[in-house]
Design a protein around this nucleic acid. Structure first.
Lengths: 215, 215
DNA sequence: TGTACATCAGTGAACGCGCGTTCACTGATGTAC
DNA sequence: TGTACATCAGTGAACGCGCGTTCACTGATGTAC
Protein backbone atom coordinates (compact mmCIF):
# COMPACT_ATOMS: atom_id res chain seq x y z
CA UNK A 1 0.00 0.00 0.00
CA UNK A 2 1.51 3.22 -1.09
CA UNK A 3 0.41 5.36 1.82
CA UNK A 4 2.13 3.16 4.38
CA UNK A 5 5.27 5.00 3.36
CA UNK A 6 3.72 8.35 3.90
CA UNK A 7 1.79 7.88 7.10
CA UNK A 8 1.03 10.80 9.38
CA UNK A 9 2.62 14.22 9.34
CA UNK A 10 3.03 16.92 6.76
CA UNK A 11 6.66 17.97 6.80
CA UNK A 12 7.91 14.50 5.99
CA UNK A 13 9.65 13.83 2.68
CA UNK A 14 7.52 12.55 -0.08
CA UNK A 15 7.88 11.91 -3.78
CA UNK A 16 5.96 13.21 -6.70
CA UNK A 17 2.81 11.48 -5.49
CA UNK A 18 1.43 12.34 -2.13
CA UNK A 19 -0.06 8.92 -1.68
CA UNK A 20 -2.86 9.91 0.64
CA UNK A 21 -3.82 13.38 -0.39
CA UNK A 22 -7.54 12.91 0.00
CA UNK A 23 -7.21 12.11 3.68
CA UNK A 24 -4.61 14.81 4.17
CA UNK A 25 -6.96 17.40 2.69
CA UNK A 26 -9.77 16.34 4.98
CA UNK A 27 -7.49 16.59 7.98
CA UNK A 28 -6.31 19.99 6.81
CA UNK A 29 -9.89 21.17 6.37
CA UNK A 30 -10.77 20.04 9.88
CA UNK A 31 -7.84 21.86 11.41
CA UNK A 32 -8.49 25.01 9.38
CA UNK A 33 -12.15 25.09 10.34
CA UNK A 34 -11.21 24.54 13.96
CA UNK A 35 -8.79 27.45 13.78
CA UNK A 36 -10.72 29.97 11.72
CA UNK A 37 -14.28 28.80 11.32
CA UNK A 38 -15.88 27.41 8.19
CA UNK A 39 -15.58 30.73 6.38
CA UNK A 40 -11.83 30.83 6.99
CA UNK A 41 -11.27 27.61 5.13
CA UNK A 42 -10.17 27.63 1.50
CA UNK A 43 -9.05 24.94 -0.90
CA UNK A 44 -5.80 26.78 -1.53
CA UNK A 45 -4.96 26.87 2.15
CA UNK A 46 -5.83 23.22 2.62
CA UNK A 47 -3.54 22.35 -0.28
CA UNK A 48 -0.76 24.41 1.26
CA UNK A 49 -1.22 22.68 4.60
CA UNK A 50 -1.07 19.30 2.86
CA UNK A 51 2.15 20.39 1.16
CA UNK A 52 0.73 20.18 -2.32
CA UNK A 53 0.14 22.55 -5.23
CA UNK A 54 -3.13 24.50 -5.33
CA UNK A 55 -4.35 22.48 -8.30
CA UNK A 56 -3.89 19.10 -6.66
CA UNK A 57 -7.09 19.07 -4.55
CA UNK A 58 -9.18 19.19 -7.69
CA UNK A 59 -8.13 15.61 -8.41
CA UNK A 60 -10.11 14.62 -5.32
CA UNK A 61 -12.80 17.22 -4.74
CA UNK A 62 -14.88 19.14 -7.21
CA UNK A 63 -14.90 22.25 -5.05
CA UNK A 64 -14.81 23.53 -1.51
CA UNK A 65 -18.35 22.35 -0.81
CA UNK A 66 -17.42 18.79 -1.73
CA UNK A 67 -14.56 18.85 0.76
CA UNK A 68 -16.67 20.50 3.45
CA UNK A 69 -19.41 17.98 2.73
CA UNK A 70 -17.00 15.14 3.33
CA UNK A 71 -16.02 16.69 6.66
CA UNK A 72 -19.69 17.03 7.56
CA UNK A 73 -20.36 13.44 6.58
CA UNK A 74 -17.60 12.18 8.85
CA UNK A 75 -18.89 14.45 11.55
CA UNK A 76 -22.29 12.79 11.39
CA UNK A 77 -20.62 9.40 11.58
CA UNK A 78 -18.69 10.46 14.64
CA UNK A 79 -21.79 11.94 16.23
CA UNK A 80 -23.72 8.77 15.51
CA UNK A 81 -20.97 6.74 17.16
CA UNK A 82 -20.85 9.04 20.18
CA UNK A 83 -24.62 8.95 20.65
CA UNK A 84 -24.74 5.18 20.23
CA UNK A 85 -21.99 4.75 22.81
CA UNK A 86 -23.73 7.06 25.27
CA UNK A 87 -27.15 5.48 24.85
CA UNK A 88 -25.54 2.08 25.34
CA UNK A 89 -28.69 0.38 24.25
CA UNK A 90 -30.59 1.92 27.13
CA UNK A 91 -28.37 0.66 29.90
CA UNK A 92 -28.28 0.84 32.82
CA UNK A 93 -31.79 2.30 32.45
CA UNK A 94 -33.52 4.25 29.68
CA UNK A 95 -33.80 7.61 31.41
CA UNK A 96 -30.18 7.94 32.56
CA UNK A 97 -29.02 6.54 29.21
CA UNK A 98 -31.10 9.20 27.49
CA UNK A 99 -29.49 11.85 29.64
CA UNK A 100 -26.09 10.46 28.79
CA UNK A 101 -26.94 10.86 25.13
CA UNK A 102 -27.73 14.51 25.70
CA UNK A 103 -24.39 15.02 27.37
CA UNK A 104 -22.73 13.27 24.46
CA UNK A 105 -24.34 15.71 22.04
CA UNK A 106 -22.97 18.67 23.97
CA UNK A 107 -19.63 16.96 24.36
CA UNK A 108 -19.46 16.49 20.62
CA UNK A 109 -20.19 20.17 20.00
CA UNK A 110 -17.48 21.09 22.49
CA UNK A 111 -14.79 18.61 21.51
CA UNK A 112 -15.27 18.54 17.75
CA UNK A 113 -16.01 22.14 16.87
CA UNK A 114 -14.74 21.75 13.33
CA UNK A 115 -17.00 18.81 12.56
CA UNK A 116 -19.90 20.49 14.29
CA UNK A 117 -19.38 23.65 12.25
CA UNK A 118 -19.20 21.72 8.99
CA UNK A 119 -22.37 19.83 9.89
CA UNK A 120 -24.52 22.68 11.15
CA UNK A 121 -22.98 26.03 10.36
CA UNK A 122 -21.36 25.75 6.96
CA UNK A 123 -24.70 25.33 5.16
CA UNK A 124 -23.30 22.65 2.90
CA UNK A 125 -25.81 21.40 0.33
CA UNK A 126 -26.84 17.84 1.03
CA UNK A 127 -25.64 16.79 -2.43
CA UNK A 128 -22.16 18.08 -1.68
CA UNK A 129 -20.96 14.64 -0.67
CA UNK A 130 -22.56 11.32 -1.51
CA UNK A 131 -23.95 9.79 1.65
CA UNK A 132 -24.07 13.06 3.54
CA UNK A 133 -27.82 13.06 3.84
CA UNK A 134 -28.01 9.45 4.97
CA UNK A 135 -25.19 9.90 7.47
CA UNK A 136 -27.26 12.66 9.02
CA UNK A 137 -30.30 10.42 9.00
CA UNK A 138 -28.41 7.65 10.77
CA UNK A 139 -27.21 9.98 13.52
CA UNK A 140 -30.75 11.20 14.10
CA UNK A 141 -32.02 7.62 14.03
CA UNK A 142 -30.02 6.82 17.16
CA UNK A 143 -31.90 9.53 19.00
CA UNK A 144 -35.20 8.47 17.52
CA UNK A 145 -34.80 4.85 18.50
CA UNK A 146 -33.88 5.85 22.02
CA UNK A 147 -37.00 8.00 22.13
CA UNK A 148 -39.05 5.01 20.99
CA UNK A 149 -37.66 2.88 23.76
CA UNK A 150 -38.47 5.61 26.25
CA UNK A 151 -41.93 6.17 24.89
CA UNK A 152 -42.67 2.48 25.25
CA UNK A 153 -41.98 2.74 28.96
CA UNK A 154 -44.19 5.78 29.47
CA UNK A 155 -47.71 5.48 30.85
CA UNK A 156 -49.96 5.07 27.85
CA UNK A 157 -52.18 8.05 28.44
CA UNK A 158 -49.22 10.43 28.51
CA UNK A 159 -47.19 8.88 25.74
CA UNK A 160 -46.32 11.35 22.99
CA UNK A 161 -45.20 10.32 19.52
CA UNK A 162 -41.62 9.13 19.83
CA UNK A 163 -40.56 11.12 16.79
CA UNK A 164 -41.81 14.29 18.41
CA UNK A 165 -39.97 13.50 21.63
CA UNK A 166 -36.80 13.00 19.65
CA UNK A 167 -37.28 16.30 17.86
CA UNK A 168 -37.91 18.15 21.10
CA UNK A 169 -34.84 16.81 22.79
CA UNK A 170 -32.69 17.27 19.74
CA UNK A 171 -33.87 20.86 19.44
CA UNK A 172 -33.14 21.65 23.06
CA UNK A 173 -29.72 20.01 22.90
CA UNK A 174 -28.95 21.75 19.65
CA UNK A 175 -30.14 25.09 20.95
CA UNK A 176 -28.01 24.80 24.05
CA UNK A 177 -25.02 23.74 21.98
CA UNK A 178 -25.47 26.65 19.57
CA UNK A 179 -26.07 29.26 22.20
CA UNK A 180 -23.81 28.19 25.02
CA UNK A 181 -21.24 25.67 23.88
CA UNK A 182 -20.02 26.82 20.50
CA UNK A 183 -17.26 29.41 20.76
CA UNK A 184 -19.22 32.47 19.81
CA UNK A 185 -17.68 35.82 20.63
CA UNK A 186 -21.05 37.13 21.76
CA UNK A 187 -21.96 34.08 23.79
CA UNK A 188 -23.97 34.64 26.91
CA UNK A 189 -22.69 33.45 30.27
CA UNK A 190 -24.61 30.66 31.93
CA UNK A 191 -25.24 30.31 35.67
CA UNK A 192 -24.61 26.57 35.28
CA UNK A 193 -22.89 24.23 32.87
CA UNK A 194 -24.54 23.53 29.55
CA UNK A 195 -24.76 19.88 30.59
CA UNK A 196 -26.63 20.74 33.78
CA UNK A 197 -28.99 22.98 31.86
CA UNK A 198 -29.80 20.28 29.34
CA UNK A 199 -30.13 17.57 31.95
CA UNK A 200 -32.58 19.66 33.95
CA UNK A 201 -34.58 20.52 30.85
CA UNK A 202 -34.83 16.94 29.70
CA UNK A 203 -35.81 15.78 33.17
CA UNK A 204 -38.59 18.33 33.42
CA UNK A 205 -39.75 17.28 29.97
CA UNK A 206 -39.67 13.57 30.80
CA UNK A 207 -41.44 14.09 34.12
CA UNK A 208 -44.35 15.42 32.18
CA UNK A 209 -44.53 12.12 30.34
CA UNK A 210 -44.46 10.17 33.56
CA UNK A 211 -40.94 9.02 32.83
CA UNK A 212 -38.80 10.64 35.47
CA UNK A 213 -39.14 10.63 39.22
CA UNK A 214 -40.93 13.22 41.28
CA UNK A 215 -41.02 17.03 41.37
CA UNK B 1 -32.26 67.78 7.54
CA UNK B 2 -30.16 66.80 4.62
CA UNK B 3 -31.49 63.28 4.16
CA UNK B 4 -35.06 64.44 3.73
CA UNK B 5 -34.04 65.19 0.17
CA UNK B 6 -32.69 61.72 -0.37
CA UNK B 7 -35.31 59.55 1.24
CA UNK B 8 -35.80 56.00 0.15
CA UNK B 9 -34.45 54.29 -2.91
CA UNK B 10 -31.03 53.82 -4.39
CA UNK B 11 -31.24 54.76 -8.04
CA UNK B 12 -32.43 58.27 -7.31
CA UNK B 13 -30.19 61.21 -8.24
CA UNK B 14 -27.96 62.49 -5.56
CA UNK B 15 -25.17 65.01 -5.29
CA UNK B 16 -21.68 64.59 -4.06
CA UNK B 17 -22.88 63.74 -0.59
CA UNK B 18 -25.09 60.76 -0.15
CA UNK B 19 -26.83 62.27 2.82
CA UNK B 20 -27.80 59.05 4.51
CA UNK B 21 -25.07 56.62 3.66
CA UNK B 22 -24.90 54.98 7.05
CA UNK B 23 -28.51 53.87 6.84
CA UNK B 24 -28.15 52.92 3.20
CA UNK B 25 -25.18 50.68 4.03
CA UNK B 26 -27.11 48.93 6.77
CA UNK B 27 -30.01 48.32 4.42
CA UNK B 28 -27.60 47.04 1.79
CA UNK B 29 -25.98 44.71 4.31
CA UNK B 30 -29.36 43.33 5.31
CA UNK B 31 -30.36 42.65 1.74
CA UNK B 32 -27.00 41.10 0.89
CA UNK B 33 -27.07 38.81 3.90
CA UNK B 34 -30.62 37.82 3.05
CA UNK B 35 -29.55 36.97 -0.48
CA UNK B 36 -26.20 35.27 0.09
CA UNK B 37 -25.74 34.63 3.77
CA UNK B 38 -23.41 36.46 6.13
CA UNK B 39 -20.34 35.11 4.36
CA UNK B 40 -21.51 36.52 1.04
CA UNK B 41 -21.57 40.03 2.35
CA UNK B 42 -18.66 42.40 1.72
CA UNK B 43 -18.09 46.06 2.32
CA UNK B 44 -17.30 46.61 -1.34
CA UNK B 45 -20.59 45.10 -2.45
CA UNK B 46 -22.56 47.05 0.13
CA UNK B 47 -20.93 50.24 -1.14
CA UNK B 48 -21.80 49.32 -4.72
CA UNK B 49 -25.38 48.66 -3.74
CA UNK B 50 -25.56 52.03 -2.01
CA UNK B 51 -24.19 53.65 -5.16
CA UNK B 52 -21.04 54.87 -3.54
CA UNK B 53 -17.30 54.36 -3.98
CA UNK B 54 -15.67 51.44 -2.16
CA UNK B 55 -13.83 53.79 0.17
CA UNK B 56 -16.92 55.62 1.35
CA UNK B 57 -18.15 53.08 3.91
CA UNK B 58 -14.98 53.57 5.93
CA UNK B 59 -16.26 56.98 6.92
CA UNK B 60 -19.01 55.22 8.85
CA UNK B 61 -17.77 51.76 9.79
CA UNK B 62 -14.33 50.64 10.83
CA UNK B 63 -14.72 47.30 9.08
CA UNK B 64 -17.19 44.64 8.04
CA UNK B 65 -17.65 43.45 11.61
CA UNK B 66 -18.73 46.92 12.71
CA UNK B 67 -21.39 46.99 10.00
CA UNK B 68 -22.51 43.44 10.73
CA UNK B 69 -22.56 44.31 14.41
CA UNK B 70 -24.88 47.20 13.72
CA UNK B 71 -27.20 44.87 11.81
CA UNK B 72 -27.11 42.40 14.70
CA UNK B 73 -27.87 45.18 17.17
CA UNK B 74 -30.93 46.25 15.24
CA UNK B 75 -31.93 42.64 14.94
CA UNK B 76 -31.95 42.29 18.70
CA UNK B 77 -34.03 45.42 18.99
CA UNK B 78 -36.53 44.04 16.50
CA UNK B 79 -36.60 40.68 18.25
CA UNK B 80 -37.14 42.41 21.59
CA UNK B 81 -40.04 44.35 20.10
CA UNK B 82 -41.55 41.23 18.55
CA UNK B 83 -41.29 39.26 21.78
CA UNK B 84 -42.71 42.11 23.82
CA UNK B 85 -45.64 42.44 21.46
CA UNK B 86 -46.33 38.71 21.52
CA UNK B 87 -46.06 38.42 25.29
CA UNK B 88 -48.42 41.38 25.59
CA UNK B 89 -47.72 41.66 29.26
CA UNK B 90 -49.06 38.18 29.83
CA UNK B 91 -52.48 38.74 28.30
CA UNK B 92 -54.91 37.18 27.86
CA UNK B 93 -53.26 34.62 30.15
CA UNK B 94 -49.62 33.80 30.92
CA UNK B 95 -49.44 30.38 29.29
CA UNK B 96 -50.94 31.30 25.91
CA UNK B 97 -48.96 34.54 25.94
CA UNK B 98 -45.84 32.52 26.56
CA UNK B 99 -46.69 30.29 23.63
CA UNK B 100 -47.27 33.36 21.48
CA UNK B 101 -43.78 34.51 22.37
CA UNK B 102 -42.38 31.21 21.15
CA UNK B 103 -44.20 31.61 17.86
CA UNK B 104 -42.85 35.13 17.61
CA UNK B 105 -39.31 33.82 17.98
CA UNK B 106 -39.80 31.39 15.13
CA UNK B 107 -41.57 34.02 13.09
CA UNK B 108 -38.63 36.32 13.53
CA UNK B 109 -36.21 33.65 12.36
CA UNK B 110 -38.40 33.02 9.33
CA UNK B 111 -39.25 36.58 8.37
CA UNK B 112 -35.99 38.29 9.17
CA UNK B 113 -33.37 35.79 8.09
CA UNK B 114 -30.75 38.47 7.53
CA UNK B 115 -31.06 39.89 11.02
CA UNK B 116 -31.20 36.42 12.48
CA UNK B 117 -28.04 35.44 10.65
CA UNK B 118 -26.19 38.55 11.77
CA UNK B 119 -27.27 37.94 15.36
CA UNK B 120 -26.59 34.24 15.65
CA UNK B 121 -24.61 32.97 12.71
CA UNK B 122 -22.14 35.65 11.77
CA UNK B 123 -20.15 35.27 14.99
CA UNK B 124 -19.76 39.00 15.37
CA UNK B 125 -17.66 39.98 18.40
CA UNK B 126 -19.76 41.72 21.01
CA UNK B 127 -17.51 44.78 20.83
CA UNK B 128 -18.21 45.13 17.12
CA UNK B 129 -20.94 47.67 17.75
CA UNK B 130 -21.51 49.72 20.89
CA UNK B 131 -24.69 48.56 22.57
CA UNK B 132 -24.74 45.21 20.83
CA UNK B 133 -24.29 43.24 24.02
CA UNK B 134 -26.94 45.19 25.89
CA UNK B 135 -29.42 44.94 23.03
CA UNK B 136 -29.04 41.18 23.27
CA UNK B 137 -29.52 41.37 27.00
CA UNK B 138 -32.71 43.36 26.61
CA UNK B 139 -34.18 40.87 24.16
CA UNK B 140 -33.45 38.01 26.51
CA UNK B 141 -34.86 40.01 29.41
CA UNK B 142 -38.30 39.96 27.81
CA UNK B 143 -38.23 36.19 27.88
CA UNK B 144 -36.85 36.11 31.39
CA UNK B 145 -39.50 38.41 32.77
CA UNK B 146 -42.21 36.36 31.16
CA UNK B 147 -40.70 33.26 32.73
CA UNK B 148 -40.75 35.00 36.09
CA UNK B 149 -44.42 35.80 35.73
CA UNK B 150 -45.11 32.20 34.81
CA UNK B 151 -43.02 30.82 37.63
CA UNK B 152 -44.94 32.95 40.09
CA UNK B 153 -48.12 31.21 39.01
CA UNK B 154 -46.68 27.70 39.30
CA UNK B 155 -47.37 25.55 42.36
CA UNK B 156 -44.59 26.27 44.77
CA UNK B 157 -43.22 22.76 45.12
CA UNK B 158 -42.72 22.41 41.37
CA UNK B 159 -41.47 25.93 40.67
CA UNK B 160 -38.09 25.96 38.94
CA UNK B 161 -35.81 28.99 38.83
CA UNK B 162 -37.33 31.41 36.32
CA UNK B 163 -33.97 32.03 34.70
CA UNK B 164 -33.61 28.34 34.02
CA UNK B 165 -37.09 28.15 32.54
CA UNK B 166 -36.21 31.03 30.26
CA UNK B 167 -33.02 29.32 29.17
CA UNK B 168 -34.80 26.06 28.47
CA UNK B 169 -37.46 27.64 26.35
CA UNK B 170 -35.03 29.89 24.56
CA UNK B 171 -32.84 26.89 23.80
CA UNK B 172 -35.68 24.84 22.41
CA UNK B 173 -36.98 27.72 20.32
CA UNK B 174 -33.51 28.50 19.10
CA UNK B 175 -32.79 24.87 18.30
CA UNK B 176 -36.00 24.53 16.34
CA UNK B 177 -35.29 27.77 14.51
CA UNK B 178 -31.74 26.68 13.65
CA UNK B 179 -32.65 23.18 12.59
CA UNK B 180 -36.02 23.61 10.94
CA UNK B 181 -36.70 27.24 10.11
CA UNK B 182 -33.48 28.70 8.82
CA UNK B 183 -32.99 28.02 5.13
CA UNK B 184 -30.33 25.34 5.36
CA UNK B 185 -29.74 23.27 2.25
CA UNK B 186 -29.43 20.15 4.38
CA UNK B 187 -32.46 20.88 6.49
CA UNK B 188 -34.50 17.93 7.63
CA UNK B 189 -38.20 17.72 6.84
CA UNK B 190 -40.61 17.96 9.73
CA UNK B 191 -43.86 16.01 10.09
CA UNK B 192 -45.45 19.20 11.44
CA UNK B 193 -44.80 22.94 11.40
CA UNK B 194 -41.98 24.33 13.48
CA UNK B 195 -44.57 26.31 15.42
CA UNK B 196 -46.53 23.20 16.30
CA UNK B 197 -43.38 21.43 17.36
CA UNK B 198 -42.35 24.26 19.65
CA UNK B 199 -45.83 24.71 21.06
CA UNK B 200 -46.08 21.02 21.92
CA UNK B 201 -42.62 21.03 23.49
CA UNK B 202 -43.32 24.05 25.63
CA UNK B 203 -46.68 22.67 26.72
CA UNK B 204 -45.14 19.38 27.80
CA UNK B 205 -42.47 21.32 29.65
CA UNK B 206 -44.96 23.60 31.37
CA UNK B 207 -47.23 20.71 32.31
CA UNK B 208 -44.38 19.33 34.33
CA UNK B 209 -44.35 22.54 36.32
CA UNK B 210 -48.08 22.36 36.94
CA UNK B 211 -48.65 25.25 34.58
CA UNK B 212 -50.55 23.76 31.67
CA UNK B 213 -53.63 21.64 31.53
CA UNK B 214 -52.67 18.01 32.06
CA UNK B 215 -52.18 15.13 29.59
C1' DT C 1 -27.87 89.37 3.77
C1' DG C 2 -23.39 88.19 2.25
C1' DT C 3 -18.79 86.18 2.50
C1' DA C 4 -14.86 83.54 4.16
C1' DC C 5 -13.67 79.50 6.05
C1' DA C 6 -13.48 74.98 8.53
C1' DT C 7 -15.27 70.65 8.28
C1' DC C 8 -15.84 66.37 6.60
C1' DA C 9 -18.43 63.02 3.50
C1' DG C 10 -17.47 60.95 -0.62
C1' DT C 11 -14.06 60.31 -4.83
C1' DG C 12 -11.32 57.60 -7.73
C1' DA C 13 -7.22 55.64 -8.60
C1' DA C 14 -4.10 52.65 -6.95
C1' DC C 15 -1.86 48.80 -4.32
C1' DG C 16 -1.02 44.16 -2.93
C1' DC C 17 -3.31 39.92 -1.76
C1' DG C 18 -5.17 35.39 -1.95
C1' DC C 19 -8.43 32.84 -4.17
C1' DG C 20 -10.51 29.62 -7.71
C1' DT C 21 -9.65 27.52 -11.78
C1' DT C 22 -7.32 26.13 -16.25
C1' DC C 23 -3.79 23.84 -18.74
C1' DA C 24 -0.25 21.25 -20.88
C1' DC C 25 3.03 18.86 -18.52
C1' DT C 26 5.71 15.23 -15.81
C1' DG C 27 6.88 11.46 -13.43
C1' DA C 28 5.51 7.60 -10.37
C1' DT C 29 2.80 3.34 -10.29
C1' DG C 30 1.32 -0.89 -11.56
C1' DT C 31 0.15 -4.14 -14.96
C1' DA C 32 0.17 -6.93 -19.37
C1' DC C 33 3.01 -9.71 -21.71
C1' DT D 1 12.61 -11.40 -14.28
C1' DG D 2 12.38 -7.75 -17.49
C1' DT D 3 10.23 -4.31 -20.51
C1' DA D 4 6.71 -1.46 -22.70
C1' DC D 5 2.92 1.01 -21.83
C1' DA D 6 -1.43 3.09 -19.95
C1' DT D 7 -2.93 5.51 -16.20
C1' DC D 8 -3.43 9.19 -13.43
C1' DA D 9 -1.89 11.99 -9.25
C1' DG D 10 0.44 16.02 -8.69
C1' DT D 11 3.07 20.25 -10.96
C1' DG D 12 3.73 24.97 -11.70
C1' DA D 13 2.71 28.74 -14.18
C1' DA D 14 -0.73 31.55 -15.48
C1' DC D 15 -5.26 34.02 -15.66
C1' DG D 16 -8.83 37.05 -14.12
C1' DC D 17 -11.36 38.43 -10.10
C1' DG D 18 -12.98 40.92 -6.19
C1' DC D 19 -11.62 42.28 -1.94
C1' DG D 20 -9.73 45.46 1.79
C1' DT D 21 -7.40 49.43 2.46
C1' DT D 22 -4.69 53.82 1.53
C1' DC D 23 -4.31 58.36 -0.16
C1' DA D 24 -4.40 62.98 -1.71
C1' DC D 25 -8.23 65.07 -3.47
C1' DT D 26 -12.77 67.59 -4.13
C1' DG D 27 -16.84 69.71 -3.39
C1' DA D 28 -20.99 70.28 -0.48
C1' DT D 29 -22.51 72.01 4.02
C1' DG D 30 -23.09 74.97 7.59
C1' DT D 31 -21.43 78.43 10.54
C1' DA D 32 -18.91 82.64 12.33
C1' DC D 33 -18.74 87.13 11.54
Amino acid sequence: MSWSRHGGGGTERRGYHHGNLREALIEAAVSLIAAKGPAGFTIAEAARQAGVSPAAPYRHFRDADALLGEVALRGFERLEAALTRAWANGTPAPVPAFEAMGRAYLGFARDEPAYYAAMFEAHVPREAAPGLQSAGDRAFAVLREAAERLAAVAPKERRPPALMMALHVWSMAHGIASLFVRPDPSRRKLPMTAEELLEAGVLIYLQSLGLAGGG
